[in-house]
Amino acid sequence: MQLIPCPWCGPREEAEFRYGGQAHVAYPEDPSALSDEEWARYVFFRENPSGPFAERWSHSAGCRRWFNAVRDTRTHELLAVYRAGEPAPEVTA
């Protein structure tokens, strides 16, 4: 059972969290202006890197806050955790 450091509540077991997929995928400014392909990229396509990956988590059984975490997908190690709205920190795996 991995610990995930909630930026507010501190480290808690992963069972308290919900996964939200890739972080920093902004909702398009004007979806109607996008081509079908551009829209499909937003809806269906996500990165799948081997290494650091910025993703969203929600402390759903705790403070219910969404936040961002950089996880090394090879080891699951959380390299950084930061609050929603904050820029992704520089990390090295």
Partner: peptide, 10 residues
């Protein structure tokens, strides 16, 4: 004051 899981309930 923590919100957490106790057994299978919040």
């Amino acid at each position: 004051c923590v919100q957490t899981l106790l057994a299978r309930t919040g």
